[in-house]
Amino acid sequence: MLDDRARMEAAKKEKVEQILAEFQLQEEDLKKVMRRMQKEMDRGLRLETHEEASVKMLPTYVRSTPEGSEVGDFLSLDLGGTNFRVMLVKVGEGEEGQWSVKTKHQMYSIPEDAMTGTAEMLFDYISECISDFLDKHQMKHKKLPLGFTFSFPVRHEDIDKGILLNWTKGFKASGAEGNNVVGLLRDAIKRRGDFEMDVVAMVNDTVATMISCYYEDHQCEVGMIVGTGCNACYMEEMQNVELVEGDEGRMCVNTEWGAFGDSGELDEFLLEYDRLVDESSANPGQQLYEKLIGGKYMGELVRLVLLRLVDENLLFHGEASEQLRTRGAFETRFVSQVESDTGDRKQIYNILSTLGLRPSTTDCDIVRRACESVSTRAAHMCSAGLAGVINRMRESRSEDVMRITVGVDGSVYKLHPSFKERFHASVRRLTPSCEITFIESEEGSGRGAALVSAVACKKACMLGQ
């Protein structure tokens, strides 16, 4: 009897593995994704193909990295998701002549009506938060230079001027797309009239992360975010950046690689679950690469896999709870928690219980395998993109072996128990001629924006502006 049951459990697990095998990517698959990513990057950089390229390769006008001589107080704003952060950054000489960066910050959550109302409502709310922060720190009387981390696709015309191309991540505030974001912020500050600010720089969160990590390690020339969304930036040779005049030196390019796949480059790798996630998203047909990796989508992918296993009578005796059938019910943090389970399955059992399920031991094991399959594919897909960037940098610099540091931020990278190990191992397999160091950014977005502002202020002083 026991043997029969054991055989049935083994057969069930084997069927589960057959279904989950769809998520496995072979090294040849990853090399294919990497080569296609490089081709799209090239198209994004070139003037004649930029418009139709899915990977936009947006110039950021960040050319210099901090040298350690900029000092002063800077205000930093960070808008990239449902939370908005205001930070005071003091850049100065530390002990023994070292450079020191001290920060104080406060988080504000953005109400739904500000995210989806008008641009005026959104930026009025942001300036209200700045006003509140300055009151708390008794700094209303000071006109501070301000660095703005704005983590949406922007076409820069200068370091302090950028046109919002399109909202992502659930934002829909009308009247912002096609307009200068810094102008919208300046107008809102003017409307309030109770404080003055000098907006000197606007950067993407990947750029802010790279600059913040450069402060720790001067070989950091790539910034990457794996959180709600997924994106990367890197220092490109100016001669390859056709959208900006000049051939000397390097400029940081914001790849906006989340949109890779929007022209069909990933079609052969998309599964039924991916198509369902895409169809029910706020932007169907867009940001397809990001939807395979980002935390906004990972939990939902797992939920759809679990429903398939229920329908195949391989999980929960073929019956799903009402909660499990509800879109968004299986949160991405559950994926991390399930994979963090120590082996007694308590954590998995508790999560499934909150979803109205009474799982068996085998159910718990199957749910864990589903989570591992989805998150491992995410790590491997992400590795193909980064390997594409790094191999490109090595080739354009004609280096036999390139040493490089990548600064990384984002909740999936930082909080998932195995993502970074799987990701690092896969990147290294795909970049055999590179020695890569990964560092995690601390308060990256805010500190990085302030350091970019410090560079901009120093330049302005040198130019006598």
Rank of each mutant, 00 (worst) to 15 (best):
E93V: 08
D73G: 01
Q38A: 07
K172L: 07
P111A: 03
G80D: 15
V338W: 00
K90Y: 02
M238W: 01
T82I: 04
M34T: 02
G44D: 01
S151T: 09
D274S: 03
E96R: 09
V203P: 02
S398H: 08
N391G: 06
V62A: 02
W257E: 00
S109G: 09
S340E: 06
C461F: 15
D365G: 02
M139H: 09
A384D: 00
V408F: 05
E399V: 05
G175R: 05
P417R: 07
A21Y: 11
D409L: 09
M37C: 01
D400Y: 07
S398R: 08
M34G: 04
C457M: 12
G264E: 04
T361F: 02
H105R: 06
M121C: 06
G175I: 10
L266G: 01
S418C: 11
F171A: 11
S212I: 03
N204H: 07
D363S: 04
T149R: 14
E128F: 12
V253S: 00
D409K: 06
L47V: 06
A6P: 13
T49A: 05
E319D: 08
C233Y: 00
E70D: 04
K104L: 09
E440M: 12
G94M: 08
N240V: 09
F84S: 01
V452D: 05
I159A: 04
F269M: 03
S69C: 10
Q347M: 11
V389S: 02
E237F: 11
S418P: 13
D78M: 04
I211K: 00
S151F: 05
P66T: 15
E196A: 08
L314Y: 07
V389Q: 04
Q219V: 15
A425D: 10
E442F: 11
A454Y: 13
G318T: 04
R358C: 09
R191W: 02
L415C: 08
R46G: 15
A370I: 04
I163L: 12
G264M: 06
S127V: 11
R36A: 02
R63L: 00
Y214L: 02
E435L: 12
A173V: 04
E435N: 12
K458N: 13
Q26C: 09
K39W: 04
L144F: 14
S281I: 10
R303D: 01
A329R: 15
R394M: 05
E48R: 09
M238S: 05
